[in-house]
């Protein structure tokens, strides 16, 4: 029996409708209504006048930025050496890096906690540092994989060509390798930065008292304040939408596409 493409799309469309579109509508409804169900912009105004909410937004942004930067710094050379086969058993090393992704991440963080408390004595001494370590550890594979994919396909002749034309190693990295691996950088950053903005499990487990966006929303919801919680979600959603649009544009500017994971 042959299905048309439309027919094959029905299950996914249903899934999308029930689990993505409907909840979004509900969130939007609560965000722009007050306790008695009337339409209002009050929640919106309150978010931007609430110092704590804005502070948390900034804090989340900084954590996500540092995590992404660290992941990129660690993953870029790692992916390069793995992809270019400078080390024996490259595939096995890649597996070791990817392997943690298959283990439940709360489990991994618990293990990380043990190691950190052993090293630091008490986790509460360095909550910010612990958060960054935990986040970087958690998201690193998501940065390595897309970078590895683009670098594996990178034409080594272009690097030779640049050196042939007089480029030093630094110029080769800046003018050839980074532009060529841009698709991988963009998808890696997208896959690390956006989830890092809202990931509050790591903070919780690392005893970081300061709220991150995700936990702020959670705290409103657990206090049955659906309206303010929904408003924060909406703002966050808009922010994420904006960021993905920017990264998509950056990706489109690099001619040799591909490897967006």
């Amino acid at each position: 029996m042959a299905f048309t493409r439309k027919q094959l799309g029905i299950p996914y469309a249903l899934f999308l409708l029930i689990f993505v579109v409907l909840p979004l509508l509900v969130v939007l409804y609560y965000a722009f209504t007050n306790g008695s169900g009337q339409f209002t912009f009050e929640n919106f105004a309150q978010f931007f006048t609430n110092g704590k909410a804005l502070g948390t937004l900034l804090y989340s942004f900084v954590i996500a930025l540092i995590t992404t930067g660290l992941c990129l710094l660690i993953a870029y050379p790692t992916a390069y050496f793995l992809a270019k086969g400078r080390i024996p058993h490259g595939a096995a090393w890649l597996l070791i890096i990817v392997l943690p992704m298959w283990i439940n991440f709360t489990l991994r963080l618990t293990a990380m906690k043990e190691i950190l408390s052993f090293l630091e004595g008490n986790l509460a001494y360095h909550p910010f540092l612990n958060t960054i370590i935990g986040m970087t550890y958690d998201f690193l594979p998501f940065m390595v994989l897309p970078l590895y994919n683009t670098m594996e396909k990178m034409d080594h002749q272009l690097i030779d060509a640049a050196r042939d034309l007089g480029a030093s190693d630094a110029v080769v990295i800046r003018r050839v390798m980074i532009p060529l691996s841009m698709p991988g950088i963009v998808s890696g950053v997208t896959m690390v930065f956006l989830p890092a903005m809202t990931n509050y499990v790591v903070l919780d487990m690392m005893y970081n008292s300061t709220y991150i966006m995700g936990s702020l929303i959670g705290s409103y919801f657990s206090a049955y304040n659906w309206h303010d919680g929904s408003m924060i979600s909406t703002v966050l959603l808009l922010l994420i939408g904006l960021l993905s649009w920017i990264s998509k544009k950056a990706g489109a500017d690099t001619e040799e596409g591909g490897a967006i994971l």
């Binding site: 030779d160 034309l165 532009p179």
Partner: peptide, 29 residues
């Protein structure tokens, strides 16, 4: 090293930089 030699190469598969236009490719060196 290659960048210190008064020698230039035409590679087998051209090896033009795909993200640059023709002018930037030629002007690279």
């Amino acid at each position: 090293p290659p960048n210190k030699r008064p020698i230039n190469t035409v590679f087998q598969k051209y090896a033009l930089f795909p993200y640059m236009n023709i002018y930037d490719n030629i002007a690279f060196g």
